[in-house]
Amino acid sequence: MGRVGGTHTSGGVPGIGLAKGLAVTLRTMTRRSVTGQYPDTSPELPPRSRGVIALLEENCTVCMLCARECPDWCIYIDSHKEAVPAPEGGRPRSRNVLDRFAIDFALCMYCSICIEVCPFDALFWSPEFEYAEYDILDLTHERDRLREWMWTVPPPPAHDSRAERPKELSAAEGAEGRPGRGPRG
């Protein structure tokens, strides 16, 4: 630490260091505090905050893409196939049924790769971050808990006012306006 007052380093005026320090005090005394009162007020999180991953298990088709692409291998999926009889005879169709879907949030690196690769939009980011636990095994969220996080997923933020239209909308409207093209398989 330097000398109190700093008389030798700032031009020889005695007490200039003290005056500078008091000036900082006076300047900040009139401003509002920047401290967020977290447990009393919830913080204003930026859009698309990565808090916890929610699972919409109705959309999951057990394609295992998320578990395969996860850099940490922190997604556990168990499934089995069920045979569904075909509606008008024929070969019975097989269908994947999800047995277990768990994400180990002690291990997850929040890279969002699983959410991006999910082809059926079954995974979403939720901004919730309050799930510190006493036991590390509780950080592995099973499918019911992941489904509960789904209620906290915010709607996607609106586009900018002059942004390009979403391609999905244009494609859907173009397909509607085109005559003579029925729904194809």
Binding site: G36, Y38, P39, P43, G51, F105, A106, C108, M109, Y110, F129, E130, Y131, A132, E133, Y134, D135, I136, L139
Partner: peptide, 17 residues
Amino acid sequence: VDVYVPGCPPRPEALLH
């Protein structure tokens, strides 16, 4: 360990929690 805070890295509010 008493409390495990998940995140990579966790938010500062997560540490507060």
